[in-house]
Design a protein around this nucleic acid. Sequence first.
DNA 1: ATAATCTCTATTTATTTAGTAGGATATATA
DNA 2: TATATATCCTACTAAATAAATAGAGATTAT
Lengths: 148, 148
Amino acid sequence: MKISTKVEYGLIALTDIAMNSEQGTAVSASEIAQRQHISQKYLEQILMLLKQAGFVRAQKGLKGGYSLAKPTASVKLSEVLNALDNSILADTYTPEDAQNEGLRPTVNACLWGRINLYLRELTTNITLETFLEQCRESAEQSWDYYNI
Amino acid sequence: MKISTKVEYGLIALTDIAMNSEQGTAVSASEIAQRQHISQKYLEQILMLLKQAGFVRAQKGLKGGYSLAKPTASVKLSEVLNALDNSILADTYTPEDAQNEGLRPTVNACLWGRINLYLRELTTNITLETFLEQCRESAEQSWDYYNI
DNA sequence: ATAATCTCTATTTATTTAGTAGGATATATA
DNA sequence: TATATATCCTACTAAATAAATAGAGATTAT
């Protein structure tokens, strides 16, 4: 499944903020950009999406930056993805589709609709909390892998 | 999830062939194009993919066309999708990704990899046979819906 | 004051998608 | 064998989308 950089960077940024603002300090866009090798200006646009959707709060000025606006357990991955790209979990259903005399509506209903439902269920059941836990486990595993 | 017309039309075409070549007669591209309202020239390119991947066989010349090359129960949806667009079920993993010092490899492994695995499992368990059955059920349902 | 930070909008560039187009090749049938 | 009807193959193009780049404005801790 092809993921746009916007969605990928957005999730990386959210993860970076979660991991690096634990002491109550905000994480600036420039920090994230440097750490994750992402264009800062592009990242700023993406961070605005995360802020508008209520996942992070922003603090302007010196020592400002972004911090989490909610407890990680209440952040559903499906909602984060929707905030970054509202087509990623959506059915691409058009009004003309419904009037199509061919197989298009049927295939849409039977297959793509079913796949999207599946994806929504999957991503609804992943929270930022569980995701961060998996990231830590994954990091440990690759550490072991290279050192044993 | 955004599906390209190439993939969508490919699946529609395969379904059309399955439904309309039962008497051993081949289905021509022009027939499919008319029935499904798809550009014939574009469709021809897509049918070539399905042929190259071994899902349909082609018969040139007068009264020619396409017919299924395998029993429907042995056609896995995952394989059809891969034939039409090999990125749709794939991890978008690049060599640079592995060397990235940031969170990118971790997020790739923990999230996109997991989602793709999920999608592959789902689509591997759908065969053309089961899909056709669902299409028929769906058609009956909408029939009922509008007539009762 | 000022330097650092987010905010907002416009523009540009690169890539992908969704076709269009034209002709070559093969073949059933009259 | 002539012909109409198919598939096969490749090149090209227009439109949409993705991925930034750029610049200026607003805010705020120090």
